[in-house]
């Protein structure tokens, strides 16, 4: 199939980027979206041009590295998949596809479609952990946890940190990402101990990084590859409020 591409090209963080047009004639519908970009890059290399840089790692939909805006939607038109799990059969012969990096002030473009998501790391460093002595793993049954609680905690822990929530949010809020980690840890006995401190520190860091506020449009949950529930945000708000404001 023939695909017309409009891709964001930007040399450096400071440079002014722009959309550039490319045409691919020999795309097959079995290709993943990233394979299609690989094909484009092979052509660019053959022509002696600089390749389109984009983030990717596992290409299995579990690492959270890939993620671009495809035709104005995070990870493209399919619901709840990462960019690498999107295939060209979701498009038609002759389609024009816009490819842009996830945009937010806190996600500066490094080059082309590659963005700097270290703001996510710093929010986790601010409190998204439990303080535990290292050493031998403790006996698993010494801390009983109900199956339901373990499952709920795991649902929140399933966040892969791709940043689609921020990219989709009209306010560029990181509430879904931060709240998933807060909820994951507060549900478990080991995480409860530092719960109050954690929610305060992580929210403070979220402000510090310059993310916007959550206005509960719930767009993040719709685009999230891991279907992280917006109720995580409600839980984060509750944990924050009960610790002081209310």
């Amino acid at each position: 199939m023939k695909i017309f591409l409009k891709i964001w090209r930007q040399e450096t963080r400071e440079a002014k980027g722009e959309m550039k047009n490319y045409v691919l004639d020999d795309v097959t519908e079995d290709m993943s979206f990233l394979s299609m970009l690989d094909l484009l890059n092979e052509k660019l290399i053959a022509a002696g041009e600089r390749v389109v840089e984009f983030d990717h790692d596992c290409r299995e939909g579990i690492c959270g590295q890939c993620g671009v805006m495809i035709n104005g939607q995070a990870h493209g038109p399919l619901p709840h998949v990462t960019t690498c799990q999107l295939h060209m059969r979701s498009f038609n012969n002759g389609d024009t596809i816009y490819v842009e990096p996830f945009r937010a002030k806190s996600f500066p473009v490094i080059r082309d479609l590659k963005i700097d998501r270290s703001s996510f790391d710093r929010m986790i460093q601010a409190g998204g952990y439990i303080s535990a002595s290292t050493g031998q793993a403790p006996e698993a049954n010494s801390i009983p946890i109900s199956h339901k609680t373990a499952e709920a905690a795991f649902d929140s822990a399933a966040c892969i940190g791709c940043g689609a929530c921020v990219a989709t949010c009209k306010n560029s809020s990181a509430a879904l990402f931060v709240s998933a980690k807060i909820t994951h840890l507060v549900l478990l006995p080991q995480g409860k101990i530092e719960a109050d401190e954690r929610v305060r520190k992580m929210i403070a860091q979220m402000n510090e990084e310059g993310f916007g506020h959550c206005s509960n449009t719930e767009a993040c949950e719709v685009e999230c590859p891991q279907q992280i529930s917006v109720l995580n945000i409600a839980r984060m708000n509750w944990e924050f409020n009960k610790g002081g404001f209310l």
């Binding site: 409009k6 964001w8 959309m19 805006m69 035709n71 104005g72 816009y98 842009e100 945009r103 937010a104 002030k105 806190s106 996600f107 500066p108 473009v109 009209k170 306010n171 560029s172 809020s173 310059g210 993310f211 916007g212």
Partner: peptide, 10 residues
């Protein structure tokens, strides 16, 4: 301010 650069196609 948090939004930064706008999307070309949104």
């Amino acid at each position: 301010k948090a939004n930064g650069q706008k999307y070309v196609y949104d």
